[in-house]
Design a protein around this nucleic acid. Structure first.
Lengths: 222, 222
DNA sequence: TAGATTGTTAATCGATTAACAATC
DNA sequence: TAGATTGTTAATCGATTAACAATC
């Protein structure tokens, strides 16, 4: 089934917050309107991209004037779903897990981590940034009782599959996986892979396009 | 300039580590060869994707037999550039910065964080996981002396632009930005944006396609 | 009016998917 | 040989880019 006009795509979701931040800063400076060209310039992208994106989320502008900043802010806010509260749990409360629990961005955007889970007896029972840490053995049960739908995995790769299984047992439908490994899940469960290592390699490769190309050329002539 | 055959694309870079891990586990079990279909099944993707990817990195297989696991492991290792050491510095040693410094995956793949920077006097002078933390005012100077090319930004968004500026002053050519804000940099500098918030929203949206679609349909008929 | 900016339709580009021939 | 698997060429799909008409 395909609905034209209003699409949901990852690149779009990644650009919208930048527009939002820019519009907010303009609005705070007392500016009422904002043009797609101004947004584009600030974000270092083409204005056509901005116009297409705004079309996709249903924002309406006026020729010569642009978009009403306040309207745009609201439209992005609503499209991103920042209005409604969503509750998460996290498995793995090591350094990365703790950092995620303490990350202030989540609460600002309607996400709330309501429980942490770990195997370390020293951590279980403590609170990290007001979030209580339970034993991993209780995960499935607590998830079920609290009807949580999204779980974060921040455990070592060896333990990730088992954690995923108990999350799914408890009724989790979406997994945000920081562990660098493929998870085996039923088709109804969505996995969002967050591979930090790969992001770093992509940056590294982007910095040396000529080197990649010369290798390429060499290989081809063989 | 376009070199066909061997391309560099982000999706490819994100898939290769999964193939690598799978091949390694097979090799450890004493298996000598691996087929694209086996990799595909393990990673929950289509075997055509795997074959295209392996073609892109220059791996050669044999019909009916498949690929030699050890060769594939080496080919991916080399293509990912995991062989050579690359040094990084990080600005911002709060909870996220500390987690990144302590992340074991980096050293396993040839990345080494050699210095941290912060404004907090209580943190400056301490060591996190053997990495010394300096004052942010020294960043540009130290980067220049050590010829570091990649910098990580894990400071609050308000401070990010200023940090980026001093990184670039010092000669940094690639910035891995965990701060949810657009950076203004010269064209020669590459920015890899790591917006955790957006990743989470993408997961959330992927979980509710029907809801998105019904909104879409409603909007269109208006 | 003139010019700037939106909005829409078409073209391009790259990645994914499909089809099928080659080959061990 | 027969069947499985690679490798290659073409088709599809979606996102980006371009061109230009509409309009304030």
């Amino acid at each position: 089934m395909h609905y034209p006009g209003r699409t949901f795509s990852a690149p779009l979701i990644r650009r919208l917050p930048e527009y939002h931040a820019f519009c907010e800063s303009l609005a705070n400076q007392g500016q009422r309107t904002v043009s797609s060209t101004a947004i584009a310039e600030h974000c270092n992208i083409d204005s056509i991209v901005v116009r297409k994106d705004l079309e996709n989320i249903g924002a309406k502008g006026r020729p010569k004037i642009g978009f009403i900043a306040a309207e745009l802010i609201d439209a992005i806010h609503e499209y991103m779903g920042w209005g409604m509260l969503d509750e998460l749990i996290i498995a793995g409360c090591g350094s990365l897990g703790s950092a995620l629990i303490s990350y202030s961005g989540f609460s600002r955007r309607g996400f709330k981590i309501i429980a942490g889970f770990d195997v370390d007896q020293d951590v279980i029972g403590t609170k990290i940034n007001d979030v209580e840490v339970f034993s991993l053995t209780k995960l499935s049960n607590i998830v079920q009782r609290l009807h949580v739908e999204i779980g974060i995995i921040a455990v070592p790769p060896e333990a990730a599959q088992k954690v995923a299984d108990s999350m799914i047992d408890g009724g989790i439908r979406g997994i945000w996986n920081f562990s660098p490994c493929a998870l085996n899940v039923p088709r109804s469960v969505i996995v969002q892979q967050e591979d930090l290592m790969s992001s770093l390699v992509i940056l590294q490769k982007s910095m040396k396009p000529q080197q990649i190309n010369s290798n390429t050329a060499k290989e081809i002539q063989l």
